[in-house]
């Protein structure tokens, strides 16, 4: 049997840096979308609290950090990063998304200036503080953007990984030229 080598979504593309900005790949252990059944959001939140120590975030938010995180992921939908969830049978639709998304992290002083060229949402720290998350556009792609500390965690469909890196790296370079 062939022994295939697993590649990450941004294999060979990252890291990239221009001026003060760096773009690196994040490879989460597992990604799972959780869509609570009608009226079960509270039960799902309690289950996650006892199993993984985090609650479901409110709309436009994210809870947890580092190894375990729950991100608001659209109407009635959340994304758990880190462990695969336990005990959600019968109260939520649970789908493994681990290989479906490319995840990158953008860092650097005034990284919001880079995103301002690509994203139609105000990404400045005052408007988009630590722990907030949106589903929006980056160029023509739908993405999820979460503010984590000083940086931004950006997720796009895995099939768009090359475009994602190309778009962000281009904006990084253009903004760095003007500093």
């Amino acid at each position: 049997m062939l022994d295939l080598t697993a590649k990450t979504p941004c294999d060979g593309l990252l890291p990239v840096s221009h001026g003060p900005f760096t773009l690196t790949e994040i490879v989460p252990k597992a990604l799972t979308s959780i869509a609570p059944f009608k009226g079960q959001a509270g039960a799902v939140s309690d289950t996650l609290q006892s199993a993984h120590g985090i609650t479901l975030p409110s709309i436009g938010g994210a809870t947890g950090n580092g190894s375990v995180q729950a991100i608001w992921f659209g109407q009635g939908q959340y994304l758990l990063t880190g462990p695969a969830p336990d005990g959600l049978d019968g109260i939520a639709a649970v789908t493994d998304q681990t290989d479906a998304w490319a995840t990158v992290r953008l860092d650097g002083h005034e990284a919001a200036e880079v995103l301002a060229r690509l994203v139609p949402v105000d990404m400045r720290p005052a408007m988009f503080p630590d722990g907030t998350s949106v589903r929006t556009l980056l160029g023509h792609m739908t993405v999820s953007i979460t503010r984590e500390g000083e940086g931004y965690r950006i997720m796009a469909f895995r099939s768009m990984a090359v475009t994602l890196v190309h778009e962000i790296a281009g904006a990084m370079e253009a903004v760095a030229q003007r500093l």
Partner: peptide
């Protein structure tokens, strides 16, 4: 009503 004011491109 969920996300607040957003650009029409979305």
């Amino acid at each position: 009503p969920i996300c607040g004011p957003r650009d029409s491109r979305e």
